[in-house]
Design a protein around this nucleic acid. Structure first.
Lengths: 361, 361
DNA sequence: CTGTTAGCGCGTTCAC
DNA sequence: GTGAACGCGCTAACAG
């Protein structure tokens, strides 16, 4: 599959560099030495010219720039990292990329990394801890300078790899009982408790809960636990729980679940859903069936997705600082990396949440 | 920031490897030689044992496995790639991760890469070609074995880097006039034309279009062009065009745009939107204003997002094979990589689309 | 089945 | 301001 370097070099230097070789195969990219030769300097000088803040005379810098241009040279960073012992990227693992809560977190990470010389390498697990373990290993093989995880549940082997990786580890979106290293998150249970209390304060008494199978979605099961806890404290019944399939939870599942709930407990006053997406599905299904929301049944979600602010009626939900979680996680990461020279950051940052009351309750 | 390797080694080998050094700094990860020493073999044998399909005796394989376990060793793939000249990953650049159309494509890529030994490295541009150029460079610095792009519009420099990278390049979600290399996509213009024709066939005559500022969203502007073209062919007016801000287009923008449209052209019969998300925003806004959809005004979207099938009334839209685009792009990529030994794939694959008629029209 | 040698492309380090 | 030697951690190639 690969030609010998020498063979390539012969061709590359005979033809113009970096064009297609006659038989259709691709040429090898030029190296720093190729650039150096063309510019009449040493490779070291090219390396310096490519790094900002290093002293190279204007004249040679320009000759090098021209050579780079002519050859279409792109630095081989993997070779550079080997030598400098810095790979220049951090890994982040999120459950799903198609979920604006988590992609907002990714955006927060990206933004906070801006200007640090660190790049984000993103992976997604589809809510599977086994897939997470695979990803952790695949990431660590590339030697990230830090790693950001979603949640505090990992396989034993995944956890062990993280502990031994010798890099900062930030767990987010949760408050793990036994953090691996640093944490940026909030209690999903408390957030759901707050929602229940807020709605109970408005007079609702018969609450139902719609969520996914608990085993697979840690944050979802914490929200459910918070739901039950809050109702128990209020002395209200807490047994109206509908579970549907595994995450990623779909809108359609919310639609089916609310039907299920109204069949079993027709006098339910308010349905709380594990996320705005299932809440939206429930809301639309109610409308389809001619039920008035919130008069016939109230509905609330979790996450404050765009859809919650835009649907009709607008959805009551819990806003969590997705973007801020990402920003602060990345910040804590870079601070930890620089901790040799500066003060190490706090091990735990608790992020806020708040109930957003809208028309659906 | 970093200690000398020697210093680390001294500490690491004095203490147990890979634990925190007393003062809180992290230890360097163990190397293959560390594992080899502990297992009483050469580094090369460790390398072989780590690679499936290579012949290492059961006894030594087990000793190595134990040493790896005890040390918590994880292969340094970046060093390996330098030597083997294979990085084991492909790059994909999509406009937004928080968009189920594109994340479905990413999922298709991931799935098609399964078992090939190739990993996906994902980047997102926020619909900016400048950001795309940055990403292309950042990706190429890590030497991907192939690259998958969204759309056919790139900066001149981005295009040049891609042409010279010496790796397969797949442009997707579009049919570029001058492809860089291979293409997996469809004509966004034709797809929108088909939607217009289908709805005209149902008797609609006064069409409006809601989309983003055209300069920034190539696929959006192609859809708009298709809209205009189809109406001209049908001899119907094609001047009812509402443009709102830059992508990513939000639901809220769709809501504002439909209001705008109904103020300017109150007798509009059907509003076509650049995507289901803006169409949904428009739909909800109409309901808020007491307009009946589709009786007072019909609405259609583009993309067949989950929300289109779930909202009330359900949304007419154009289904495009997002997942299939990803699958086929990755397939074409791996086929091209292996093309030295096998048949090279077709340069262009055209993917399908179809109108999904629902209740909103 | 296993070891040795060499070198991947670059940055560190030191010398000039 | 510039260059030469060396090594990062690993694997290809060859030898045994």
């Amino acid at each position: 599959m690969y030609l010998h370097k020498q063979v390539f070099d012969a061709i590359v230097h005979a033809e113009a560099a970096m064009t297609k070789i006659p038989d259709g195969k691709m040429a090898e990219p030029p190296t720093m030495s190729d650039v150096a030769r063309r510019a009449g300097v040493s490779a070291m000088t090219v390396s310096r010219a490519l790094k900002k803040g290093s002293h190279v005379s204007k004249a040679t810098r320009e000759r090098i720039a021209q050579a780079i241009n002519e050859l279409g040279y792109v630095l081989d960073q993997s070779a550079g990292s080997l030598s400098s012992r810095r790979t220049g990227f951090v890994a982040a693992i999120i459950p799903s990329i198609n979920n604006s809560n988590f992609s907002d977190t990714a955006r927060g990470i990206t933004d906070a990394l801006e200007g640090t010389g660190l790049q984000l390498l993103l992976g997604y697990t589809n809510y599977s801890v086994d897939r997470e373990e695979e990803l952790i290993e695949a990431m660590l093989k590339r030697r990230p300078e830090g790693i950001i995880l979603t949640g505090g549940s990992h396989t034993p082997r995944g956890r062990r790899m993280l502990e031994q990786a010798g890099i900062p580890v930030i767990e987010t979106w949760d408050r793990p009982a036994q953090p691996i290293d640093k944490v940026v998150g909030f209690s999903n249970g408390e957030a759901m408790e707050l929602l229940v209390k807020t709605l109970a304060g408005k007079g609702y008494q018969r609450f139902g809960y719609i969520g996914g199978t608990t085993a697979r979605d840690t944050r979802g099961s914490q929200r459910r636990a918070g739901f039950v806890r809050a109702l128990e404290r209020l002395g209200l019944p807490s047994d109206r729980l509908i579970s549907f399939g595994v995450p990623p939870i779909s809108m359609e599942q919310g639609a089916q679940a609310v039907v299920n709930m109204l069949e079993r407990w027709p006098d339910t006053q308010v349905a709380l859903c594990v996320s705005d997406l299932s809440a939206f599905g429930a809301l639309m299904e109610c409308q389809r069936r001619g039920l008035k929301v919130p008069d016939d049944i109230a509905i609330a979600g979790f996450g404050d997705y765009e859809i919650a602010a835009c649907c009709h009626p607008r959805m009551t939900t819990v806003n969590v600082d997705c973007y801020g979680i990402g920003r602060q996680a990345a910040l804590k990461l870079t601070q930890t990396i620089q901790a040799v020279s500066a003060e190490p950051p706090e091990p735990i940052t608790v992020t806020g949440f708040r109930v957003v009351e809208r028309e659906s309750t």
